[in-house]
Design a protein around this nucleic acid. Sequence first.
DNA 1: CTCCATACGTAGCATTGCTACCTATCCCGA
DNA 2: TCGGGATAGGTAGCAATGCTACGTATGGAG
Lengths: 112, 112
Amino acid sequence: MRAEALKGHLDGLLLATLENGPRHGYAVKEALCEATDGRIDLPTGTVYPALHRLERAGLITGIWSVVGGRRRRTYQLTQAGHAALSRERTGWQEFATAVTAGLGTRPWPATS
Amino acid sequence: MRAEALKGHLDGLLLATLENGPRHGYAVKEALCEATDGRIDLPTGTVYPALHRLERAGLITGIWSVVGGRRRRTYQLTQAGHAALSRERTGWQEFATAVTAGLGTRPWPATS
DNA sequence: CTCCATACGTAGCATTGCTACCTATCCCGA
DNA sequence: TCGGGATAGGTAGCAATGCTACGTATGGAG
C-alpha cells in the first residue's frame, strides 16, 4: 500500500480500534494491523503522534498505568470521539463512492 | 468532503479522466466533477499543478493549441500513464478494502 | 460595459504520515 | 550469561500534497 494513501483517513481508523473498549497505544497499532489482515501495519512513529493529536483534539482521553514493569497509556473514546468516529465513517463512505466513481471502476468489490 | 481526504488519490482520478481520449486541463477538472456528480470539484489551483506533476513524471504529455482565442494545453496519457492508472486502480481497491475493514463498516455500499 | 465562464498559472501554507532515532523492560534461546 | 526480539513509549525533522489566494487573459451574455 502506498504510504501517503492513508493521509486524512488515519484518525478514523484509530478511533475505530477504541470503539469496543479502551486500549493502550501499542495495542491500538496491533488491533488495526489485525483488523486489516496486516494491510495497515503502522510504524510507532505514526501511531503515537496521532494519538497525541486525537487527545489534544478531545476525541480520546488517556491514563497512565504500569503493567509488568512497563508504563502504558490507556486511551478511550470520549463522547466527541464517538461522534467523530461516526462522522469519519459516513465521510469515508462518501469519499469512497466518489473516488470509485471517478476512477471508473466497478462499484464494489470487483473481487470476482 | 473533507479537503485533505483526497491526498494521495488525486493522480489516479486525473489520469482516469484522460483514459478515453485527450483533454485540456480545464476539461479534466470538469470531467472529474461530472463523473463524481459534483462530489469532487477541484479548485484550479489543485488541478494545474497536479497536471504539471503528472507531466514531469512522464504519465501524460501536453501540447499547446489555441481555440477561440484561448490557449489550451491538451493532455493525453502516455504508455506509462496507462500503466500507472491501472496500478492506481488496483491500489485503490486494496486501500479501500483495508480502510473499510479497519473502520468496521459494511463491505459495501451500506446504502441499504 | 460589466460580469461570468473559460483557461492557464504561481506562491506560500498547513497538514500529515513517515523515517530514523532514542529509552526502557521482559523473556526466550544460545 | 548474554544478545536479541517483542513490548511500550517517545521525539525531531522531512517530504509530499492539496488548498487558499492571488494574477492574467479572452469571449460572450446581459
